[in-house]
Design a protein around this nucleic acid. Sequence first.
RNA 1: GCAGGGAUAGCAAAGCCUGGCCAAAUGCGGUGGGUUUAGGGCCCAUUCCCGUAGGGGUUCGUGAGUUCAAAUCUCACUCCCUGCACCA
Length: 944
Amino acid sequence: MIDHKSIQSKWLSEWEKAKLFESDINEREGILVTAAFPYVDMPLHIGHLRTYGTADFYARYKRMRGFNVLYPMAFHKTGTPILAISKRIAANEPDIIDVLKKLGVEDTEVIKKMSDPYFLADYFEKITEEGMRGAGFSIDWRRKFDSINPFFSKMVEWQFSKLNEKKLLVTGEHPVGWCPNEGNAVGQHDTKGDVQPEISKLVAIKFKDSGSDKYFACATYRPETVYGVTNLFINPKAQYVIADMDGTKVYMSKDAFEILKYQFDMNLVSEINGEELLAKKAINPINGKEVPIFPGSFVKPDFATGVVMSVPSHAPFDYEELEKLKGSNYDTGLKYEDYIRCLETPDESKSTDIPALQYLNSKKKDDGSYDVEAATKDIYRDELRRGTMLVGDYKGKGVSEARESISKDLISDGNAFEVNIISNEEPVYCRCGARVVVHTVKNQWFINYGEKEWKEEAKSYVPEMLIYPEKTRNALLAAVDWIDLRAAERAQGLGTKFPFDQDHIIESLSDSTIYPMFYTISNIIFSSGAKPEQLSGEFFDYLVYGKLDANEVSKSTGIDYEVLKKCRDSFSYWYKFTSRHSASDLVFNHLTMYIYNHLAIFPEEYWPKQIVVNGLVNNEGVKMSKSLGNVIPILKGIELYGADTLRFIEIVNSDLDQVAEFSTESVNSVNQKIEYIYSVLSKIKGMSAGELRPIDFWLYSKLNRKIRDATDMVEKFNLRDAYISIFYGSVNELRYYFERGGSNSIVVNDFMSKVILMLSPVMPYNSEELWHMIGNDTFVSKQQWPEPEENLIDDSVEQLEDMLNSTIEDISNTIKLTSKIDANKGKSVKSVKIIVADDWKFKAYEKLREYKSMSKVINLPEFSTISKESLSKYLSSLIKNVNSLPDLQYSSEDEYNALDSSKDYIKSKLNGLSEVSVKREGESDSDRAFRASPTSPAIILEWN
RNA sequence: GCAGGGAUAGCAAAGCCUGGCCAAAUGCGGUGGGUUUAGGGCCCAUUCCCGUAGGGGUUCGUGAGUUCAAAUCUCACUCCCUGCACCA
């Protein structure tokens, strides 16, 4: 067994002693590798290892390719989650304490102290750093900082002053989830059960009361069906009110009023019974038609406005309700022709002309009742997709187009307004217990990612970046196109004050878009003695644009001239080539904003060059999440499974864009192979050098082919395939080499050292250990990546091994099949004759590959001595695969020698054979000898 | 709804961009065997159907199309997953 722990701690301290990963500018080409910094409201878990590990892999690989690589790290503390957790700890909520305990925070004293958000953040920062060091990340820790650092804030302020200069900040209104009790916005972590309040938009169409100046506000998702309204529904048991909205009096349910008053400026005029409303008539604004008000038992007073327009031809709920009213005081008396069809719908069933009924019929349950919910879902979907308008201004148009236009028209004519509602299936409650409503925030500042020129620039830049995996480019393009206004500031949380509203702080995604630049100067600034306020706008203008000269900036900021120069040199060196790494969940927010902000603020030479996006990590097939309680903190994971093993599984064991599957099973499988590699190393001592045999050349060929191909794959971030070859492939090749009798110490040593080099970016600890075991006293982390020796890649030696193995397989198959023959019952195969195809077959094979025509080959003079019959018989067996015949790199003689010298091996693979002989086709008198063909010798079994 | 991704053998998953060496990698599970074999591990064989000689047949969500040739390209359809605003 390998002692992971001592290997890890040994090399970790060696690396740190040697300051191996502290990088400064030099004459070589530089690469700045950054990963989205971790949010420190909990310890890092093994899922995070994927992103930081992939970045680390890249950093280590590029170092081995001769680049000067900087991989720095920092910590994100801005925003509300840290505050929210501290608050919950202060309130002694048992849930959160449970979660912390599961995450390995056992000490109740420590937990108590975490009611201080700064303590909590510092605590997890420390644990996070420890985890990253343990994972073997090659980080330059001199440069670390966090996002509430006052120096950092100066950079963010500068960023926003630039955005503002470019008129990319705008103000406006914005709907948010809101707690009426606490009077603040609520996000996911502020709600019971951590549900995200979802806001969706409906249109409330105003139907005028025919007997007064008041309006019924009918909220609907389907304004295009307004042509088909036969009546309105209200809930007769509910209390209604008359509300004054900007001078317009509107009927709505009392519950609705209580919710919507946070969204609209409105006053309660008076209350009114639902029953009273039933006597009224309402006028449809689209056609002036007067319609009655009916009681609707299904109308929820707390949903939207509590008033619903009824479209029985297209809404199953409305249809059913009207059917129920038949025979009551509210007998509708509607005849079929009264159901107003406003859409042509695609349902082909001709049982009825009323679409709503068609869909109800298709959802009839066993007891004869309808599944109204399901019918509604179906008709909604189908009509949206394929319905066309039969009436109105948009007659002939598709529903999706008509819906948008009609609601726009209604609104601009003052006949409707938009209503936002919390659209979660279940009501959402704030942790304080109050029900979350929608509130419209006024004077909200936004970053305007919809700004036309900016968007165009971003859209044309995305295709120019290096993006891995390639399909992320599509997602990024879509995201860049889609993103519009984005709130830039908010009322609560940790972070930098918003420059144009000092009571607010900058929203935490917006403050972490250009910060990779800060890594290039953080260590210089921190050790310079400069004060935060000295990092003025001029400082950053000088740093990024080279504006003014260092003397003047030094004068105005008081920062030492040399320090300024150093900052500028460092920034302009490192920022020329940056590689940004994150998990796929940040594509639609952080990465998109990262691109936009860089484009807006930086000169083109410092724009982002490369983005690498990795998938998430599952634990035993299940998504890892705090709430599921299946996260493994990284320090614990390293202790249990070993850092290298975790790294291997998460970084290279699955495709970049796929979910990585972590399981103890995979841990075992990787560990076993690591141990096999160790065991081979200890075996080398017992071997000796000596003359190279074919199997040695085979191993060299495999090795160099591997180096060549795997390097190509790594360059394209095709890490999984590369390491299947480097790790799994090498283990298999070594096993095969020994099985075939290979035992050359020099060959094995060469093979191992190159494989160890290639393993080192993924498994730095064990590679370092193995590297020293084979007699090196340098750091493997500082070595060059191996170069393939093309002249050692030998197709023929590999093809001959393949031929040998497929021949063995054929023999084994044949024995199995023929043992079923009656004549062979009770017998076994005594000996096998292997007959190698004659040389002319090899030649004809080549010619057929070249000409792809049987007749051409048959008529070649060189085959004149061969009987036309056997020649054509042979060629016809090849012709159907003529386009896929492999290029054979060996001769009949080679094949003969390879088989003849491997008779013992063949015997060993086929149990119970007493004799194996190899003959040339021309020397054999067997009537099956003609079947021999290149790569596929004839096989003759003898039974007794 | 909008946007992105997906549907492959018992399961998971590769292949699809760049059509043909694809009955389709790999892992798990199943079956048989081996290993002085408690268990586990490891090793070998086998795991769509048929087959008395290494062969043949039918497959890659559904339907159509392009092509000498389609898991791979085009179109339509059905279903599934993820994100959607203050939340990192």
